[in-house]
C-alpha cells in the first residue's frame, strides 16, 4: 500500500459520495447516465466475488463492501426512487457495443482460463469503458451540472492515481500487472478531454458546456 493507492481509493470513494449527495439533495438524477452506473455495479460485482473467500485486510474488505453498497444504492436511486427525473432518451448509449467486445476480450486475453480470473479480467476491461455512456450523454446534452463534473473529475483522478501506484510498485517491488495497467491507461485517456474542459472551465467558475 502506498500514498498513490490510498489517494486513489479516497478519490474513488469521494466520487461515489459526491454522486449520491447530488442525487439525494437535488432529488434528481438529471444528467446522470444510469447505464454507466449499472456498468459500475457490474464491475464491482464481478471483481469483488473474492470478498467472502479470501480475506486480504480489514481495509480491503470494508472498501469493497462500501463500493458495492454505493454502486447499488446509486442504481436504485436512478431507476427506483427518482426514476421520474431520469433522462432516459439522452442516456442512449448501446451497452451491447461495450459488453460484447469486453466479454470477448476477457475470454481471449486473460492470465488463466478460470471463472474467477475471467470475471476479474472482465471487470477490469469493463471498468475502462464504463464511463463512456456518461461522457456520451454529456456530449449529447452539451452540458453538465457542476457537481456532476466534480464527480467525473474524482472518478477520472482515481485511476490516474492508480497508474502512479503501479509505477511506484514496479520500481519498489517489481510488481507489474499488464492487464490492469493497459486498461487503466485506456480508462484514463477517455477522461483527458473532460479533464481539459474541467480545468479550463469549471475551475474558473464557468459552467461546463461543450462547444
Amino acid at each position: 500500500m502506498n500514498v498513490f493507492r490510498i489517494l486513489g481509493d479516497v478519490s474513488h470513494l469521494l466520487a461515489m459520495v459526491i454522486l449520491l449527495v447530488k442525487i439525494w439533495r437535488s432529488k434528481s438524477c438529471a444528467g446522470i447516465s444510469g447505464k454507466s452506473q449499472i456498468l459500475f455495479a457490474l464491475v464491482f460485482t464481478s471483481r469483488y466475488l473474492d470478498l467472502l473467500t479470501n480475506f486480504i485486510s480489514i481495509y480491503n474488505t470494508v472498501m469493497k463492501v462500501v463500493f458495492l453498497l454505493c454502486a447499488y444504492v446509486t442504481v436504485y436511486l436512478i431507476y427506483g426512487k427518482f426514476r421520474k427525473t431520469f433522462d432516459s432518451e439522452n442516456d442512449s448509449f448501446r451497452l451491447e457495443f461495450l459488453l460484447v467486445p469486453v466479454i470477448g476480450l476477457s475470454f481471449l486475453e486473460n492470465y488463466s482460463f478460470t471463472p474467477t480470473e475471467i470475471l476479474w479480467t472482465f471487470s477490469i476491461y469493463l471498468e475502462s469503458v464504463a464511463i463512456l455512456p456518461q461522457l456520451f450523454m454529456i456530449s449529447k446534452t452539451g452540458e453538465a451540472e457542476t457537481i456532476t463534473t466534480h464527480y467525473l473529475f474524482f472518478l477520472g483522478l482515481y485511476r490516474a492515481l492508480y497508474l502512479a501506484n503501479w509505477i511506484w510498485r514496479y520500481h519498489t517491488e517489481n510488481f507489474y500487472d499488464q492487464i490492469a495497467v493497459v486498461s487503466g491507461v485506456v480508462q484514463t485517456i477517455f477522461y483527458c478531454d473532460f479533464f481539459y474542459l474541467y480545468i479550463t472551465k469549471v475551475l474558473k467558475g464557468k459552467k461546463l458546456s461543450l462547444p
Partner: peptide, 10 residues
Amino acid sequence: QHLLRTKDEL
C-alpha cells in the same frame, strides 16, 4: 511477473 499479482487492489 503477473504471478506476483495479488488481488490486494480495489
